[in-house]
Amino acid sequence: MATIRDVARRAGVSPATVSYVLNNSGPVRPETRERVLRAIAELGYHPHAGARQLKRRRSDTVGLILPTGERRLSDPFFLELIHALGDACADHQLDLLIATCRDPAADLRLIDRLYKGRRVDGFLLIDLQRRDPRIPHLQAAGIPFVAFGRIEGNGEFPWVDVDGEAGIREAVAYLVERGHRRIAYLSPPLSFTFAHHRLEGYRKGLAEAGLPLEEALIRIARPTMEAGYEAARALLVEGVPFTALIAATDLMALGAMRALHEAGRIPGQDVAVIGFDDIPMAAQTHPPLTTLRQPMDQIGQALIRTWLAAVRGETPPPTLIQPVLIRRESA
């Protein structure tokens, strides 16, 4: 069985340099790194995970706590996010530990138990609230973490986010260019930071187009297909006129399309519909849904890179990723 010294001899470097490459922990020239990796592959060298972890007092495990509330475990967006995180972890020889928590108040106890038990080296936070108690708790305890999202005022902590405000502004401009002037908007509860940013994008998009903001066109609902259906149905029953609709999530948009079909109004012909996420089923609906794609692979890689920097004690800069408007037949 090959050892780290065998790899060092084959690559013509010191064992310390091989260790730097394996742990991604020191300055190594690109050509030297390539030589070491080639030697590792040629010799079939596999570092002993337990020994490495014991030496560094690390578990090489990323902690992700999923709320088991009304949409998360069944929401295709979160399944895509977990898939992207799993791929990114594999690229860095990390494990992903997924824990579930029904009670948000129990999140903090679960965080402490997993970290103090050395089950994880740090956490990924999702579903951020505008005032999220997990942030000050982790900061006070000195626990490394990265957030997928922001809080009110952004805050000084490592985060990666998708620019929901810019995305919805683009969606509004896209609809205005096609002659729409009465654009309805379905939003999740504004306690979620992403919902707040996306609603701001709707407001700013209307202002940039010189259109008035009409509260009757805005509906706040749970971020589910059923809630999107009920919100759109209420607009139709109340007789609120609109020729286009933007939903802050694809699931809400799909529910709205169902309500339109039932009312005899054809999405993409009578009413333009745009969603946000680009979940797999968005391309399979009737008609296929125009939506703002969250680039999941890019998000997963950015989150894990930022997490690794936080675990190393660095202060990684925030990352704001732009969504991509995917034009299909619904708008």
Rank of each mutant, 00 (worst) to 15 (best):
P104L: 08
A247W: 09
G142C: 11
L54M: 15
D127R: 07
I218A: 03
K116S: 14
I143S: 07
L125C: 08
S191H: 14
R222C: 02
V324L: 11
F157E: 07
L217W: 08
A171S: 15
A331G: 15
A227N: 13
P76A: 06
E80M: 09
P288Q: 09
P288E: 06
P287S: 03
P30K: 02
A283V: 11
L303P: 03
L303N: 01
P212W: 07
E31Q: 15
V120C: 08
R52H: 04
Y174D: 13
K204T: 12
M296N: 03
S25Y: 02
R52W: 01
F157P: 10
M1Y: 02
E177F: 01
Q301F: 02
A253M: 08
R150M: 04
L124G: 09
V271S: 05
L211S: 09
L108H: 12
I183Q: 05
G313P: 05
I126P: 01
T319K: 14
V237W: 01
D121R: 03
A331L: 02
I40D: 06
S74Y: 01
R181G: 14
L66C: 12
R305K: 12
A105N: 10
P47V: 06
L289M: 06
I246F: 07
G264M: 09
V21Q: 07
G179M: 01
F123N: 08
D107Y: 12
Q139K: 15
A209H: 07
Q322A: 15
E215D: 15
L138Q: 13
R52I: 12
R58A: 14
F276K: 11
L43D: 10
I143T: 14
T243H: 03
R71G: 14
R10N: 04
F194M: 10
T319D: 04
G255L: 01
A272P: 05
S74Q: 11
D163S: 13
A8M: 06
L217Q: 09
A272M: 08
L320S: 13
E70H: 12
L96P: 12
L260N: 09
K116G: 15
H286F: 11
T291K: 06
V160R: 01
I299Y: 03
L79F: 07
P189K: 09
G228Y: 08
A11K: 09
L175R: 04
E70I: 10
L97W: 12
E238F: 00
E34N: 09
R265D: 02
G313C: 08
Y229N: 11
L81M: 12
I246T: 10
V237I: 14
L235N: 05
E238I: 02
